[in-house]
Design a binder for these strands. Structure first.
Length: 235
DNA sequence: GCGACAG
DNA sequence: ATCTTGTCGC
């Protein structure tokens, strides 16, 4: 017991991460779960992801910007970097954010929304990596995870449907059935400056009139592919 | 009491 | 995340 709440901090990292936890507690109240963003305003959507070498010595971060109407990619960037800390649940931001920030610098045009592979407010202190990135960028962000970190939900019945993810009586995200059952849903959570309904509607749009059946929305699918491909060229 | 635990 | 074989379905 080192944390006092939901996720314990591994003993080896306790001393370093307790101040980090304090930072999360301090920043969490600044996360905004609303804002002006609406579907009609969205033209460019960015997807970001990180791939790791098997020995965890090298990482490749990728960024793909997609036109929300045509679903065509309009910008692609990638960057190699060295992970400075291991993966520790609830501290993913501190492992991946250096990569994200360096690749975002290459953007030629500012996207209207950023999608991250991971969580927004689905987090023991309500500030997952997508939320903290949103605070720093001061831009709308959404987190999309393939596994549930915390909360409960009932399985959406059919493809295209969703259900609320609830924790301590509060709605913290949406389980979205992006592929046909029995495939597991993907787990959406607000990062920053976006409301629940807009988040769900935006993500749902990516699966409308789809030629390929994909589990991830196009920006994240392409980012995932790019990071993997570029990492492969170096190992 | 044990185990859970984004990537 | 990454590793890893065969197998199911279009």
């Amino acid at each position: 017991m080192t944390d006092g709440k939901f996720l314990d901090i591994p003993k080896d990292f306790r001393k370093e991460l307790i101040p980090v936890r304090q930072e999360q507690v301090l920043l969490s109240p600044h996360v905004l779960l609303d804002g002006d963003l609406s579907l009609e305003d969205i033209t460019l959507v960015a997807g970001l992801d990180v791939a790791y070498s098997k020995d965890d010595k090298l990482a490749c971060v990728s960024l793909v910007v997609v036109d929300f109407r045509t679903l065509e990619p309009v910008e692609e960037h990638f960057e190699y970097f060295q992970p400075s800390i291991p993966y520790i649940p609830s501290f993913l931001y501190y492992r991946e954010s250096p990569g994200y920030h360096s690749v975002i610098k290459h953007l030629e045009e500012k996207p209207d929304l950023f999608l991250f592979d991971g969580n927004g407010i689905i987090h023991p202190y309500g500030i997952g990596l997508a939320s903290q990135m949103g605070l720093e960028l001061q831009q709308p962000t959404v987190g999309i995870a393939k596994k549930l970190l915390m909360g409960k939900y009932v399985d959406p019945l059919k493809k295209g449907g969703y259900s609320q993810i609830v924790f301590e009586e509060k709605v913290i995200g949406a389980a979205f059935q992006s592929a046909d059952p029995p495939a597991k849903p993907i787990f959406l959570s607000q990062g920053h400056l976006i409301n629940f309904n807009t988040m769900v509607y935006v993500i749902r749009e990516f699966f409308q009139n789809q030629i390929f059946s994909t589990k991830l929305p196009i920006p994240l699918l392409l980012a995932d592919k790019l990071a993997r491909e570029k990492l492969g060229e170096r190992e």
